[in-house]
Nucleic acid binder design. Structure first.
Length: 125
RNA sequence: CGGAGGGCCCGAAGCGGUCGCUCCCCGGCAUCGUGCCGGGGAGAGGAAAGUCCGGACUCCAACGGGCGGCAUGCUCGCCAACGGCGAGGCGCGGCGACGCGACGGAAAGUGCAACAGAGAGCAGACCGCCGGGACCCUCGCGGGUUCCGGUAAGGGUGAAACGGUGCGGUAAGAGCGCACCGCCCGGGCGGCGACGACCCGGGGCACGGCAAACCCCAUGCGGAGCAAGACCAAAUAGGGGAGCGUGACGCGGGCGGCCCGUCCCGCUCCGCCGGGAAGUCCGGCGGCGCGCUCCCGGGUAGGUUGCUGGAGGCCGGCGGCAACGCCGGCUCGAGAGGAAUGACCGCAACCGGCUUCGGCCGGCACAGAAUCCGGCUUACCGGGCCCUCCGACCC
RNA sequence: GCCCCCGUCGUCUAGCCCGGUCCAGGACAUCGCCCUUUCAAGGCGGUAACACGGGUUCGAAUCCCGUCGGGGGUA
């Protein structure tokens, strides 16, 4: 079951995203966080057997186009990241900072990759 | 050729790759719901924006109406409706094509107008002009000072000063009188109408501005919003109902050193009926409390639905100046839900800069559906089509 | 999605309803001068703003319309 869910491809189905307000609240309340220049990363071990991704963007980041572009970049980077298969089963929340509006894609991907690499190894058992 | 005015349309846009997301259809596998694999199809805009108006739809309220409040404001028409649109009238701007206009009412009422100025509303005498009285100067003509009166033609102030020009008239003046122009009122004429100003009659002119000041008049408006609303419905707590069991061979405390206990004290369901001599005994009915089981309804999380085929597009014909309407045919173009429509690469266009002309570098707007429509407003790289006006030159 | 409020010197504000007296007043800050051996305090003087664009009016910070920005409420 676990190996079936962890398909080795670059797919990111809806099942592996955070989709509940309570999921986000749990992540903020009980999880740890890492700060980057463009982004804040919240994370918390989950029981799903695979990492799940959530994204938040407040209106301070920019207009709808800017916010949505950053969301798509985040999904793209997470989906194609080479270290994704090695990630522990965490719920992750990526929250943009206002400075992210002016970032270029390569710059953004480098930062996100660095933050993901800094996650602890353990995860849930 | 140059400049200008108006209208309409397109708008990450062309091709090829790699990896992905959402929905639908087909096939296969497993399956209680559903999930996985393969194939195919579809997947942001002219403004999706601002949320400034108007509707559809849904719920709430309601017998009907008024007051208040808000909005609109030349006329006629179009429209489901509108504060929108189309024609027309009037005013203003422009040589012109054309553009702009909150454009009802100031002879209903109440108000406002700083400063300047004599005076700011049915006004006003500062200078000036004219007449008269008194006093002074002068031989006299005349002049000066002052008082009373007349006068709105002139000066001056102001954003604005109570028709204009000319002639008569007068002490000087004045619509005081006359002519022309303007204005007002009534009637006729043209127009559905706003209005026009051709005609007739009357009036010497009374009617300044501001209603995006209060206000008056006319017309319109019940409230909320798809997170509306509908259906299914966990866990926990609570509500209602049914059935069964239970409410004394019990519990607590004291004493006898402790245990035990035939000792003492307290608590112990209620009502009615029947049996027994009687009781804390037995049986029945009703109520109350507790326990267990089952059922019912409300409702939260969550799920499903509303959810996209509609005042819909395209083509043609007819009516209308037009907005638009009618008829016929064809066609279906996103439906997410912490929210998909993406990222990267290689060529080719276009624009800008550099260029030792081979190329190199950079850019490619405004902006992202959230129930759906009709408008308005605002933002915007670049491009296409049509009509019209003015100027110059040529024929 | 719906609704409401607010934009005035560098900062906090008054004036707005009911237009003129406003080239917009006050406080703190800042600059110059005086006072003091010096600093502070004090005194005198100066610089400095009506978010933006239209409109109404003789005249707009004020009234009206539209943009832009900020804040808040609600499901």
């Amino acid at each position: 079951m676990l190996s079936a869910a962890r398909a080795p491809g670059e797919s990111l189905p809806r099942r592996e995203t955070l989709r509940r307000g309570s999921d986000y609240q749990r992540c903020y309340r009980s999880g740890a966080r890492r700060q980057g220049a463009l982004v804040t990363l919240h994370f918390l071990p989950n029981e799903e057997g695979c990492p799940r991704l959530g994204i938040t963007a407040s209106r301070k980041v920019g207009d709808a186009v800017a916010r949505h572009r950053l969301k798509r970049w985040t999904r793209e980077c997470f989906r194609r990241s080479p270290r994704r298969a090695a990630l522990p089963a965490f719920d992750l929340v990526v929250h943009f900072k206002p400075g992210a509006r002016a970032a270029a894609f390569a710059e953004f991907r480098a930062e996100l990759d660095r933050l993901l690499a800094g996650l602890p190894r353990g995860g849930s058992r």
